[in-house]
Amino acid sequence: MKEKKSNPRQTGSFSRRGFLKGAGITAAGTVIASSGVLSLHGQAPDTNKTLGPDTITISMKVNGKMRKLSIEPRTTLADALRIKLQLTGTKVGCDRGSCSACTVWIDDLPTLSCMTLAVEVGNREVTTIEGIAKNGKLHPVQEAFIEHDASQCGFCTPGMIMSTAHLLDENSNPTLDDIKSATRGNFCRCGTHPKVFVATLDAAGKM
């Protein structure tokens, strides 16, 4: 049983849950949330006393819109998007950087949102799977995924699309190896890869 600090505020630090612990470091501070989740759904926050680094309010540009959200400093970008902003298209498959299901773009750079703290985003812009269709028109990769049956259960699909769409935005004439390289971190248990490759090649022709 881990020793609990009586006043976590004094430690002055917080940790990325899970990751640091997985790396064998004791969670440094006890942080208790005021209930952002509950208030999100129109209910009054619970009145439990809040300890530790306070919930903070940040602004973040997501899919072209400025959003205000109150989070704990330790909240990952993935959780901020999924729980606070209800943008659940971004998926969490492993929560430790090994499946790429949680891929979003930060200023056009594919980034694992499970390995990024929401507070790190700063004034950069976040694009999620919900944001890549433009003016009601799907991204060519999205079209091609539908056309070529590149999704099965669909859980890895948003991440696959964020990886391949980024590739095509940068390189509209990729080779098969370029596509494999762009998706080399994307795990898919259903085995959609062959169709992801074909779909991306096809979409490239339509960029």
Partner: peptide
Amino acid sequence: QVTGTATFTADVL
């Protein structure tokens, strides 16, 4: 699925 609107149990709020 490709637009991120598919609701999985993990997404239920």
